[in-house]
Design a protein around this nucleic acid. Structure first.
Lengths: 329, 329
DNA sequence: GTATTTCATCGAAACGTTTCGATGAAATCG
DNA sequence: CGATTTCATCGAAACGTTTCGATGAAATAC
């Protein structure tokens, strides 16, 4: 491996001078600068980023920790994060939390490899986050709340969203409303469910346990949830899926059984993912401001890096997006 | 920041001993090991990953360079890469190439921050890749071929795929077949188009320039391409979109104009993305073995890291997936 | 009881940078 | 011309690890 020493030697200058030249520090004369640059080029010199970061004690990089890297939901959120990071001259990398304690994400969280982290990964334990959170390492949590003072939460009012979704169904004449859960350890899911419960209670509708099924936030989970619901003796007239992925899988399953949407059964989802408006019928859902979530999270990190005082919680609101999957009164 | 020195001091051992203890090297006695671990815990010690990587001269990390981080197509491919990387005890990070020369991707490519790279990003120039490619830095290219001996290409026979798609349309009675291009600098697109051309020629059908439009591989691009085609005096009876994203956008646009798919116009895509089977009507398309692409790429990297001899090109095949968007004879 | 081996521990060097303070030459000034 | 400032360049220390070879104590062997 060719190092800066080799470059310096070739250019007949001191290592320090080479470093200055390479980094564009003004105090080096144009002539020697050229010499150094030329030598570097000839040797095909590549600086070692670690050595550099080690010395500088800053990485100019943010990590976005995702449960899986391969989920479709994140596009807009990532864009939000990325735009703001780029604006600040920072790099963004995404890493997966598959594997929990041994995951790439854990490595980046614990080993000072980035200047800050944005976490949206239910497979990272609260434990680990608490462990890692400390004053000069900003961590923004997008999917949970834990009580550590150095972390910041950007969240969406999932509960109100769940309420809105349920209320919309009720206002369109439904009383037999099923709820399809995501993973039980998901904070988002819990809140959406809470909103659902609250709406039922508010409108004096009894919650039916047989209509609580789970679908793990996946398309396949949604399909099987739908099948379970459809096979019951008493089939609900509307289903609130805790996310769009499941809703889309569920619609597919219902259609396969010959049920018409929304005539036989109404569907509402949550998230407003891109596909939502491309499926048939177009999915009515609750929109999360995903781009804004990403952008806010990223924004807060930079405030923290500048030692500014920040609120520990940011809450963004949701919108009901009315399309064609709910039968209207 | 608490360093290993602090830990060593607190535990009353030498720095080296602390390092051994922390890394689980056997030659340290259980008693001192405990002492060190205890001290580390009390001080909330986090090792500095850079210092460690710097000394070890290996990162145990692979980078997946994507044009955008927020594209939906990549899910399966990423899973393929990830599975194999994890099997080898390696971490995987994804980084975006937005910004070209100044992107995160460029930084990771040039600064020895990872042990190998998998590139699927048309916004990284050939120039830069050639510049960086050298013997101990494996680079796997998924979306282009350039003539540098230390890079490896994993590709799909896009041309044959393009041929198959077109042939299928022809065999179902179509002769008026439009082609919607992706970005002109995309190697994939060029090959798919070449396959299309070859099929037309093979079946003695003349290529019509008015039916070559472009859609930039995006949904919106597909919509506008469809609108352009539909507005012509002579509308084709079938459209081959160079990817599914565009096809889905296109179908939407055709439907909006009151055209029935496949009765009025047949559609075929390319990729077989997840949504393909959830849109209405289900999209007939050419499947790319995305998971296998990712897995092979990752596999090859490890062979290269072991200094094994590897082929410079791997070619995977495509399959025609027949669904409902092409009218059958 | 001496010679040898095993073993835990240690100190120091190394990884490749960046950056501080020093050095001396050239340029400026009166 | 001597004094002072400016400037390019340099050497050395530092960042936080890992790891080599050395050291001496304990354990084993004869």
């Amino acid at each position: 491996m060719v190092t800066i020493k080799d470059v310096a030697k070739k250019a007949n200058v001191a290592v320090s001078t080479a470093s200055y030249a390479l980094n564009g520090v003004k105090k080096v004369s144009p002539k020697t600068k050229d010499k150094v640059l030329q030598a570097a080029k000839e040797l095909n010199y590549r600086k070692n980023g670690f050595a550099s970061d080690l010395k500088r004690a800053s990485t100019k990089t943010l990590a976005l920790i995702l449960s899986d890297l391969s989920g479709p939901f994140y596009s807009e959120l990532i864009r939000g994060v990325q735009d703001v990071a780029t604006d600040h001259g920072y790099d963004l990398i995404a890493c997966s939390a598959i594997g929990g304690e041994n995951s790439t994400a854990a490595k980046f969280l614990t080993e000072h490899r980035v200047d800050g982290c944005i976490v949206l990964a239910h497979n990272i334990t609260d434990e680990m986050l608490k462990d890692v959170a400390h004053h000069h390492f900003p961590i923004i949590l997008l999917d949970r709340e834990i009580e550590v003072d150095s972390t910041v939460h950007v969240k969406v009012d999932n509960k109100k969203g769940g309420f809105k979704a349920t209320e919309y169904l009720i206002q369109n004449g439904h009383t037999d409303i099923a709820f399809v859960n995501g993973p039980s350890d998901s904070y988002d899911n819990q809140m959406r469910f809470a909103g659902y419960q609250e709406a039922l209670q508010f409108y004096n509708i009894e919650l039916q346990n047989k209509w609580m099924v789970s679908g793990n936030f996946t398309r396949e989970g949604g399909e099987s949830a739908a099948n379970i619901l459809a096979a019951q003796d008493q089939v609900p007239t509307a289903v609130f899926f805790a996310n769009d992925e499941m809703a889309i899988g569920g619609m597919e399953a219902f259609k396969k059984r010959g049920m018409d949407i929304p005539d036989d059964i109404s569907i509402i989802g949550f998230d407003d993912i891109l596909e939502a408006k491309y499926v048939y019928p177009k999915l009515t859902t609750i929109r999360q401001p995903k781009y804004e979530m990403g952008a806010s999270a990223s924004h807060v990190i930079f405030q923290m890096l500048n030692n500014e005082k920040v609120n520990s919680t940011f809450e963004l609101h949701t919108d009901l997006i009315i399309r064609d999957s709910v039968k209207k009164l």
